[in-house]
């Protein structure tokens, strides 16, 4: 547990020192989403309808941008090797790295999402669902991303490889994340709204639990291979 907290706090401190790393993902998110009205025209109804999809797709890409550096710095400066040699639990180390990654990427994206929703004229009823969906979905993105990040350590084409590995695995999160918000916006009766959104949110939660189970195992296995 102590080792776990050590890794988290060290990563957070490092991220805060190099502020550009934290802000890059959010900045990319905001800049890219604001491009869409220029590409599609300023019609408010259209923008409101496609806002959930744009927010989720862009959030996905922003997370993708930050994945390569998730383990690379530790791999290059040898601290990963020390970690493997120290016989500490690699599974919990992976979880700690993921938690730090989510705090510096997923959480800022979650905070920025309502702002984008506002710019896209999304109904205010849907805001709360948007935030819950992001809270349940972005941790899965970090977890699944960690698998790809550990598997590609030391690979020749790390940069293009990670998107290729990760994007197919992100599709369920994208579908249910967008679906939850769509369900809120499309239905007329308030009771149905919640019921519709609820099933999507439950699937998002299920995906989170499955990734929470798999990612530490796969990540630790990949780290061991990388150090062999």
């Amino acid at each position: 547990m102590k080792a776990f907290l050590n890794i988290v706090s060290r990563d957070l401190r490092l991220a805060l020192r190099q502020r550009s790393d934290v802000t890059m993902a959010v900045l990319f998110f905001i800049l890219t989403t604001t491009l869409f009205p220029f590409g599609l025209g300023p019609e408010p109804n259209l923008l409101a309808r496609i806002a959930p999809g744009i927010i989720w797709v862009t959030a996905l890409l922003s997370v993708l941008l930050s994945l390569e550096r998730l383990f690379l710095a530790d791999y290059e400066d040898g601290s990963l090797e020390q970690l493997v040699l120290s016989r500490a639990s690699l599974e919990s180390a992976v979880l700690a790295k993921v938690l730090a990654h989510w705090l510096t990427t997923g959480l800022p994206l979650m905070a920025a999402a309502p702002l984008i929703a506002l710019l896209f004229n999304m109904e205010s009823d849907a805001f709360i669902i948007l935030i819950i969906a992001m809270a349940l979905g972005t941790p899965s993105l970090s977890l699944i991303g960690a698998i790809a990040a550990t598997l590609t350590l030391g690979a020749r084409r790390g940069g293009i490889l990670i998107p290729l590995l990760v994007l197919p695995l992100y599709i369920p999160t994208l579908i249910f994340g967008v679906g939850a918000i769509d369900a809120t916006m499309n239905s007329l009766e308030a009771g149905v709204v919640l019921a519709n959104a609820k099933s999507h949110l439950m699937f998002l939660g299920a995906i989170f639990l499955v990734s929470l189970l798999i990612a530490p195992l796969a990540g630790a296995a990949a780290l061991r291979q990388a150090m062999e």
């Binding site: 698998i147 598997l151 197919p168 599709i171 369920p172 995906i207 798999i214 296995a221 291979q225």
Partner: peptide
């Protein structure tokens, strides 16, 4: 490792 992770994901996808 990737193949196994992918295989678990196939039914979810």
């Amino acid at each position: 490792v990737l193949a196994i992770v992918g295989f678990i994901n196939v039914p979810i996808i």
